[in-house]
Amino acid sequence: MSDTTELPAVLAETRDDFLALTQADRLQLLLEFSNELPALPERLQGHEDELERVEECQSPVFILVTVGEDGDAPDVVRMHATAPRESPTTRGFASILAQGLSGLTVEQVLAVPADYPLTIGLSEAVSPLRIRGMVGMLGRVQRQVRALA
């Protein structure tokens, strides 16, 4: 498929890392991602209500996308997200996307296939219903980027 070759490097690497593991180890890797979700930048802390809630996720998770801020080049995207510690799965989803999308250009982010979350081998490990939350999250990020671009 042509879009696999075009997938940005970090997202492709994440996918390959998951696919190389057993189902049980995929959960462990997702947990590592969950633990790596960066804290919100200071200026956003305490302003979670200004972030967009990802309705597709069962747990409260909020995202904010910036384009060309914080010293970035004008078309560079950055994704911020926050979710409670008690929701590690949702945190893991957010972390995969934040790490994979931040630093990309607007064009690159919008070119990420909407079904990327379905391709990283987590549907069986966390269940198809749960992975739909990540699909929703990616859709919202792309919508925010489109609105800002």
Binding site: L27, Q28, L31, S34, S87, P88, T89, T90, A125, S127
Partner: peptide, 22 residues
Amino acid sequence: DEDVLLYETGHVPGSVKIDWHT
């Protein structure tokens, strides 16, 4: 749990996990 990873973040010592979905 509802969250499939919550057990992995810390659980009652000696306990096992059963997930409703998977």
